[in-house]
Computed example of a mutant assay.
Amino acid sequence: MIMRLAATLMLATLTGAASPAFAHAGHHTAARQTIAITNAWARETAPAQVNGGGFLTFTNKGKVADRLVSASSPVAPTVQLHTMSMDGGVMRMRELPDGIPVPAQSVVELKPGGMHIMFIGLKAPLKPGQSVALTLRFEKAGLVKVAMPVHAIADIGQNMGGGHDHH
């Protein structure tokens, strides 16, 4: 009986009748290829600073809209998707709990003064020369890993403008 069960499971695996997760692996791979990530970087933080910011650009080359739903990183226990706006001369940041839409065949830029990644409760300061590991979770593309080089505050104004690729 055990041999018959083992043979049935092996046959199911070979014919593709395995778990739903296996069946979706191809979908995530194809969708992930439609999202290109460029200009990824994180801002240097002061020694006592407990929060930090990360920035990048998404290009959805596909014909289907997607959504960045969450992010995680080993540098902080909490990573949120945020937006920043000015309200009567006061800077206000708020979490985007519904994520960030990435329309089909479009570019979405996360940049200072707008949408960004927020690292909350940093375990250590972010220093120039380091790289922050970031895992992005897209609704359709699934998990995408990104390395974000940390840039010195003094270099940000000179090097981070103009839409150039900073890799």
Rank of each mutant, 00 (worst) to 15 (best):
M1H: 08
I2E: 11
A6M: 09
A7R: 09
M10W: 04
A12N: 03
T13I: 06
L14A: 09
T15M: 10
G16R: 02
G16T: 09
G16D: 04
S19T: 14
F22M: 11
A25R: 13
H27C: 00
H28Q: 12
A30P: 02
T34K: 11
T34Q: 15
A36I: 05
N39R: 15
T45K: 05
T45A: 08
P47I: 03
P47R: 06
A48I: 02
A48R: 13
V50R: 14
G52M: 08
T57L: 05
F58M: 08
K61S: 12
R67K: 13
S72I: 01
H82L: 09
H82Y: 14
S85F: 11
S85Y: 10
M86V: 07
M86I: 06
G88C: 02
R92S: 06
M93G: 13
E95K: 10
E95T: 15
G99S: 04
P101Y: 02
S106I: 08
E109C: 01
E109M: 09
L110G: 02
K111V: 06
K111E: 06
K111A: 14
G114V: 00
H116K: 06
I117T: 04
I117E: 10
F119S: 11
I120Q: 12
K123E: 12
P125S: 13
G129R: 11
Q130L: 01
S131T: 15
L134V: 11
T135L: 01
R137C: 07
E139Q: 14
V144R: 13
V146Y: 04
V150C: 10
A154G: 00
A154K: 15
A154S: 14
D155T: 11
I156Y: 01
N159S: 07
M160G: 11
G161E: 09
G162K: 03
G163W: 05
D165H: 14
D165N: 13
H167W: 04
H167Y: 08
